[in-house]
Amino acid sequence: MVREKGSAVVFSSLVLLVAVVFYVYARASQTDLSGDRYSLTARFISANGLHVGADVQLAGVPVGRVTDIVLDPVMAVANVRFTVDRALSLPNDSAVVIGSATMTSDNSLMIQPGKAKDRLTAGAVITNAQEAVSLEQQVSNYIFGNGGLPSDSAP
């Protein structure tokens, strides 16, 4: 009987240890442990499909991570805070888009660098932000051109 209790304690301890290791790994992968990054904020009408911990990409290369998504109740927009590598010097007119490289991958925040000479500084707010396009809208755009919506590029 003592032997059964001992093996149950050992097995339970092992399961608990594995759970703790997994938790620490999960938290570390969602946290920016590097001090070589700076924070920016983007304002979206909708941050649907984006989550804290999502990659921030530039030219398909991960350069940061989404750290916070909060609703601004006054302006009724989603403020998405994210970090990027300090080595990046992004132009002031850069844009951000919520999207994914493939239809099966998670959404990420994609940076589209602008051409301005002035650069974004730590804590800057990017207002040129586009939310993700739904799968239904993508299919409609493919079948019907622009889905019957007025074109933004029309004169």
Rank of each mutant, 00 (worst) to 15 (best):
S12G: 15
A47L: 00
A47H: 04
S89T: 14
Y25A: 13
A87T: 13
L33V: 08
R65N: 07
R43E: 15
S108H: 06
F22S: 10
N146W: 07
F11R: 14
A124N: 06
D68W: 01
S140E: 12
Y38G: 11
R27G: 01
Q130K: 10
D93Q: 07
S108L: 11
S39D: 12
V61Q: 12
D55A: 12
A28L: 14
V70E: 11
P73A: 02
F44N: 06
V125I: 13
E136Y: 06
V21H: 04
P73T: 04
R81T: 14
L90M: 04
R37V: 13
I126T: 02
D36N: 15
V125D: 07
G123H: 03
Y142P: 01
Q112W: 06
V70N: 10
P91E: 11
A28Q: 08
I111L: 09
S13I: 04
G145T: 12
D118W: 00
V10S: 08
R43N: 12
Q112Y: 10
D55R: 04
A78W: 07
P91L: 04
A101R: 11
A132G: 00
T67V: 13
P62H: 02
I98K: 08
S34G: 14
T67D: 07
S46Q: 07
G99S: 09
A47D: 03
G6W: 14
L14V: 13
S29Y: 09
E131S: 14
G6P: 01
N107C: 09
I126W: 00
K115W: 13
L17M: 12
A76R: 09
P113R: 06
V56Y: 05
S94L: 02
F11L: 15
G147R: 08
S12H: 10
F11T: 15
T104M: 12
N92E: 13
N79T: 01
Q137S: 05
A124G: 05
Y23K: 12
T102E: 08
V56H: 03
R37E: 08
S105N: 09
F82L: 02
A47Y: 03
S46F: 00
L90P: 03
N48Q: 15
Y25R: 08
F82Q: 03
V66Q: 03
N107R: 14
I45F: 06
F144Y: 14
P91Q: 06
V97I: 12
K115A: 09
T83A: 07
G114L: 02
L90N: 05
S108Q: 08
D72K: 00
F22V: 14
F44H: 05
D93F: 07
L14R: 05
S134F: 02
Q30C: 03
A129S: 10
L17V: 14
D93T: 06
L109V: 04
L17D: 09
L50V: 08
L16D: 11
D93S: 06
A124S: 15
